Computed example of a mutant assay.
Amino acid sequence: MDTRFLESFLAVVDGGSIAEAARRLNLTPAALAQRLRALEQDLGQPLVLRAGRRVRPTAAGLAVLDPARRLIESTRDLRAIAAQDEPAGQLRLGAIATSLTGLLPEIIAGLRLRYPRIDYYVRPDSSMNLYQAVIGGELDAALMVQPQFPVHKSAGWLTLRHEPLILIVPEDLPDIDSRQILTAQPFIRYDRNQWGGQIVDRYLRQNGLKVREMLELDALDAIAGMVSRGLGVAIVPDWAPPWPEGLRLRRHPLPGAGGRQVGVLWTLSGARTAAQQAFVAACRARTSDQGLPGGAGQM
């Protein structure tokens, strides 16, 4: 049995659709569907049911779900163990949206030159979900916002960027005091379910700022796009570029407003320790190159 077919089945179940699973695995939907059919023929049972664009597991699919996850995990660990101390095997990473475009490509590009035997799985998600995934062993490491509570003893933390809070306003808005802008203009809020959004909310409350909230979004690039179109103003962390092209807005610093720390969280044990350490070392080298503090954590 080809374990890639099992990985495809798991991706379909986790993603809820053939299209989403194909995107995650960098396959065409037709190629992924072919893998799924081959696995069903091998096992002699239909594993998924299709309802429009959505897919859900059959009774047989549910029965093999957990054993399939354990088998895939064991296969990945065998590859890493066989490589001994050389970083190899699949490295399961997570990243928030801004790190996915602003930090991760540079780090992986450097790693691929040194350690070509590492394979990568990358899961985009919120910091809250990524934290739980790393602590629970679903991911080996994640680029995310530092939690506002002590990191679990089973994990290490390294700060890569300090992103101060800034006020972004439409380009043609008169240049007046930031407090006046915030109280007079419609406010586009960074989602309070996100750790970064909670930092923004705390700043507003601590400074007694009553805003005219228009809507609340969890995507920073979407917030910037709304502001660029003149729909309101927003407070956001000054996230790692690239920002969306063609934005017509101005950025105002907010002295004393604080910000969010973005860094890497990783597990301190497991069969893929060599690959994890190589990834964290690449992150640490990036902080040294930019003259940033090394952050807290363990190696």
Rank of each mutant, 00 (worst) to 15 (best):
I96Q: 05
D66P: 09
R79K: 14
V55G: 09
R54M: 00
L93M: 05
T75R: 14
L43F: 09
S74P: 01
R53L: 11
I72M: 08
E40N: 01
L65F: 13
A68S: 14
Q84E: 15
A83R: 07
G89S: 02
Q84P: 00
R114Y: 12
L39W: 06
A83W: 01
G44W: 08
R112M: 15
L36A: 03
Q34P: 12
R53I: 00
L71T: 07
T58H: 03
S99R: 04
R50V: 01
P46W: 04
P116M: 11
E106T: 14
Q90W: 01
S74W: 10
D77H: 07
R56L: 13
R54N: 10
I107D: 03
Q41R: 15
G61F: 00
I96V: 11
P116N: 11
L71P: 07
G94F: 07
E73I: 02
L49G: 05
E73D: 11
R50G: 08
A63Q: 14
R50F: 01
R112F: 12
L91M: 01
L100Q: 00
A63R: 15
D77K: 08
Q45N: 11
Q41G: 14
G44L: 08
G94M: 07
D66E: 15
R92V: 00
L113E: 13
E73L: 06
R69Q: 10
T101C: 09
G110T: 04
E40K: 07
G61D: 04
A80V: 07
S74E: 14
E86R: 15
S74L: 13
L71G: 03
R53C: 00
G94H: 00
E106C: 08
G102W: 04
L65Q: 14
I81H: 08
A95M: 03
D66M: 13
R70N: 10
A80K: 06
R70M: 03
L36G: 02
R92A: 07
V55E: 11
A60W: 08
G89N: 07
I81F: 09
P57W: 10
A83E: 00
